[in-house]
Computed example of a mutant assay.
Amino acid sequence: MFIFEAIEALESFFPLSFQESWDNSGFQVLFKHKILSGILLSLDVRQKTVEEAKQNNCNLIISHHPLFLQALKNFDYKFYPENVLYVATKNEISIYAAHTNLDISPSGLNNYLCKKLQLKNFYILDNLKPVFIGELEKESNFDEFIYYVKKTLGIPILKYVLSNNKHIKKVAICSGSCADYIYKLKSYDIDVFITGDVKHHSAVFAQENGINMIDATHFYTEIWFADILFEYLKNFNVKILRSTNDRIPWDYI
């Protein structure tokens, strides 16, 4: 199987047409006609990720986050992300990003999070993609729900906005950095909004408008992308590995 054939198969499930206009899903580095030797799945692509792919004889890295979101105006191979591009090109390792096309897909990342949190009757908001809304089987108080989210997603520490004491039944969820959707969700009947990268002003807005909000972090709402892709790629008759170098970039005291 050629590298481009594997990606064509993947895009039949998660087409690039799904991606947001600002996004850069797709090939970041392409050696189109190389025979596929192995796939490494990684949330981010760091220099160690490329080294890991090389050591395991994987010549295709499929990441969630694109290596580049904007065009490069200059190139200095000593600094990230140019150093990753340099090492990948030198070793003829292709890099492909499945980003917002995976988030938005009906069978993609937010769909997966709904299932992982055991939400029922969930659906994507057609006019507010990629936000999903679903319901808990049974109502929960906010404290119980916070600990449930923390445990289920394996989050060591999280922050939240508690703006009312109503029980939690209807949940809105959007992986990654979707906190600004809070401004549009104010008109929807939801009890809590789960996302990542919640900023100060978004938190104040939620608090003042009676919307509970959980910052489950960018990392821990998106690290599950590898589980999704593994299921779609496992029949390719080629080795597929999950990167051991994915890590949350923050330290805490």
Rank of each mutant, 00 (worst) to 15 (best):
M1E: 09
I3P: 12
F4S: 13
A6M: 03
A6D: 00
I7T: 11
L10Q: 06
E11R: 03
L16W: 02
L16N: 09
Q19W: 09
S21Y: 07
S21I: 13
W22E: 05
W22V: 04
F27K: 09
L30Y: 06
K34F: 00
I35D: 15
L36H: 05
I39H: 04
T49A: 11
T49P: 13
K54P: 00
Q55F: 03
Q55P: 02
N57I: 08
C58I: 03
I61N: 07
S63M: 07
H64N: 07
H64Y: 11
H64F: 06
H65A: 03
P66E: 02
L67C: 02
A71V: 02
L72M: 13
K73F: 01
N74T: 12
F79W: 05
E82R: 00
Y86E: 15
T89L: 13
I93R: 08
A97H: 12
H99M: 09
T100I: 08
L102C: 08
N111P: 00
C114A: 14
K115N: 13
F122K: 01
F122D: 06
Y123A: 09
P130C: 03
F132C: 10
F132I: 02
K138C: 01
E139G: 01
F142Y: 11
E144K: 05
L153Y: 03
I157F: 10
L158S: 02
N165S: 14
K170N: 09
I173S: 04
I173G: 04
S177V: 00
C178F: 02
Y183T: 12
K184W: 00
D189Q: 14
D191Q: 03
H200K: 12
H201A: 05
H201T: 01
S202L: 02
A203Y: 05
I211R: 06
A216D: 09
A216T: 06
H218K: 05
Y220S: 08
E222Q: 14
V238W: 01
V238T: 13
I240V: 11
T244F: 02
T244Y: 03
D251E: 14
Y252M: 10
